[in-house]
Design a protein around this nucleic acid. Structure first.
Lengths: 160, 160
DNA sequence: GTACATCGTTAGTCTCACTAACGCAACGGG
DNA sequence: CCCGTTGCGTTAGTGAGACTAACGATGTAC
């Protein structure tokens, strides 16, 4: 069901959204992100994963084991939410959560062999999903798009 | 407080986010949209408005009065959420909500003079906020960005 | 040793996007 | 003229994301 139909509009009639609304970058971002999130979430759900899983596994693979707080810093996931993510990953035996003998406040998280395998699969799944997401753009345009996003994001992250 | 600090990371240490994570368009979209939404919401809150207010007022101004369902179609706001938005707008005397004599199921929503004035102010506020949002981009790049967003959005909206 | 910071954890807030179901009114066909 | 269907406004609720506050346990610095 399309959004227009869900909103109660006959789909043969044009939505007639005002231009000044349609053209606002903030609105476009919201809408596209909603689509993108749904696409990614559904795609990952098909392989029993969520996007946070990918973030944590990738961080472990690329930078090695770490405490939950360290993972939080690497991935941008709040440490309050990290708990649940690690529970899910541990349930699936994708990571090991072991107390740090040197600092008994910490847990040290390690990626397992299954975790590595799963991550590899997720990478491929995400490649496909991004292909779908960016379908209308040529390779050059995709680079351009990612580059523009990167610059905007850097700007708003640095200056906080 | 920066996100890194909130997540519990010492801010002199680089976040070390894995590249494969940082480069994913879906993630960039999510993060940028989070920033954008906050920027817009805070900016609009300063003039006692929300972004849905703008959407409804603009739709009324550009296409004239309509039922709640029609507005829902024009703005993309679900009709379940429209109720609350119209309550807020009516409280502020920015719109009139009157029963349709020809079809007693309908309410006809009309923008008031104050509503027009308010919309005009919101337009200026939003211009400023988008200037801030897109600050790092040149005018040409902003157009490019909006155009890429438009194409992506069209693609994912048409095909549903 | 006492004050302070950090770690994992629990709980809760707020906003978005979205679904389900309600009572009511209107329309269309037998 | 009744009757099923559809559309309307409304209420309630879901699930996820982003975020805050505060806890007890532990470590660090003065």
């Amino acid at each position: 069901m399309t959004r227009a139909e869900a909103a109660g509009l006959p789909d043969d009639d044009a939505p007639k959204m005002p231009d000044r609304l349609r053209r606002r970058a903030s609105r476009q971002l919201s809408q596209l992100t909603a689509r993108s999130d749904r696409l990614i979430n559904e795609g990952l759900a098909r392989v029993d994963a969520r996007k946070w899983h990918y973030a944590v596994l990738a961080s472990l693979q690329d930078f090695g084991p770490g405490s939950q707080a360290a993972l939080s810093g690497r991935t941008g996931i709040y440490r309050s939410d990290m708990v649940g993510v690690l529970n899910e990953l541990a349930e699936r035996d994708l990571v090991e959560r072991a107390p740090d003998p040197d600092d008994r406040r910490r847990n040290i998280i390690t990626i397992s062999t299954q975790g590595r395998r799963h991550l590899h699969r997720l990478d491929k799944v995400l490649d496909d999903l991004h292909d779908e997401l960016l379908a209308p753009l040529s390779p050059a345009e995709r680079d351009q798009f990612v580059q523009l996003l990167t610059r905007l994001l850097d700007h708003h992250t640095r200056a906080s």
